[in-house]
Computed example of a mutant assay.
Amino acid sequence: MSSLTSVTAFASPSLSSCDSVAVFGCGVLGTSLCKQILSCPDFQNKSVTAITKTTTNHEKILSNFENCDNFNVVTMDSIKGKEKFDSVVFCAPPSGFEDYPGAVREVAESLWSGPENGRFVFTSSGGIYGPGNGDIVDETSPLPESSKASPRSMRLIQAEEVVKEKNGAVLRLAGLYTLERGAHNFWLEKSDGNVKGSKDGIINLLHYDDAAGSCLAALTTENDIQGKTYLISDSNPTTRYGICESALKSKRYADKTMPSFGESDAGGKGKIYNGKYSNKQLGFVPRYESFDEFMEANK
């Protein structure tokens, strides 16, 4: 699908030329990103502001940044119309918004000072490519027609169109995980021991810290990223069975048992992400090369 309008050319300054960065959505991904920005040599003595919908988690967020004078957390309502930022990263998921594309537009228009000053980065999902049947996808692969896309995918696709209209960059992320979060945790700890889909279904993964690292790479690369789309994964796709097999190697899940899997995948057996171009353009190298390597390190 094409963007709504053509992209106007700007210099697309990198993080080193910015004085301020806002991270909209400060959950696991946003918190990791804020930490990485604040520890980045290109961003010493500059300000980072985390922006949330409510104050509910502010105390928890701030506990991660004790004695950090250039970090602040505010709500959207408290800052909208009062301050704009050189660069903005939107990493809040669709689930919290009735009008997700509208929320992305509001953040871009009310919080970002524009592409002549910095960058707008939006975290999307590789899931918008559809189920797949073992095929390889990259940044240029077509997206499903609206009649075939899921409601969640359509919200993401429409949000991506807004981002490109505003000269921002889209990062389509693989399935995110930490030791305690992700498909493995649900299948091994929270489900009834039965996994929908076959054991051979292909899954592409990315650690939350690496997802944040790709956002930082988008902010710091000298390459022009405006209006462009990138596909981010650890470049080591696995399977549902492989995810569980790897997780069982860790101390956290050592006492769990392998679940049962379905006989087939009605929607397709998955896709293989090829993000080599994205990695090169962003200068991004994942810290965790594979899900299996991460679990091996947590024995």
Rank of each mutant, 00 (worst) to 15 (best):
K280P: 00
K82F: 03
L231W: 06
S264C: 12
K196V: 14
L62T: 07
F90N: 01
L111Y: 09
A212T: 05
G270M: 00
S278T: 12
S12P: 03
G275F: 13
A297V: 06
P115D: 06
G114T: 11
F261Q: 08
F24N: 04
H184I: 05
S125I: 10
N194V: 11
L62R: 15
E222Q: 13
Y129L: 01
L62S: 12
T49G: 01
L33D: 02
L231F: 11
M1F: 12
T52E: 06
A9I: 11
V73L: 00
E98L: 12
P286K: 09
F85T: 08
S278G: 10
S250D: 07
K53Y: 03
A254I: 11
K280M: 11
L188S: 03
T5C: 11
F291A: 04
S250P: 05
T178I: 09
T52C: 05
N204M: 05
A212W: 04
L4K: 08
L173G: 03
G168C: 02
K82P: 00
G102W: 05
P286L: 10
N117E: 14
D138Q: 08
T55P: 02
T123M: 06
L33I: 06
N133I: 01
T239S: 14
D42F: 14
E66P: 11
F186T: 13
E161A: 15
M1Y: 12
Y100S: 00
P115G: 07
G118C: 12
S146K: 14
L206A: 00
V7P: 04
L219R: 04
K84M: 07
T56Q: 13
L33P: 00
G201Q: 14
L4C: 01
G134L: 10
R287D: 13
A254Y: 10
L15E: 08
Q44F: 06
P93D: 07
G283A: 11
L248Q: 03
I157A: 04
K199Q: 13
A9R: 10
Q44E: 11
S16D: 10
D200H: 08
F65H: 00
H184G: 02
R155G: 04
A92Q: 01
G262E: 05
Q158S: 14
Q36R: 14
A211M: 01
S39G: 02
T238L: 10
R155V: 04
G213P: 07
F97G: 00
E165L: 13
M76L: 13
Y277L: 12
Q44M: 07
I157N: 05
S150F: 09
L111S: 07
D200R: 01
K148Q: 14
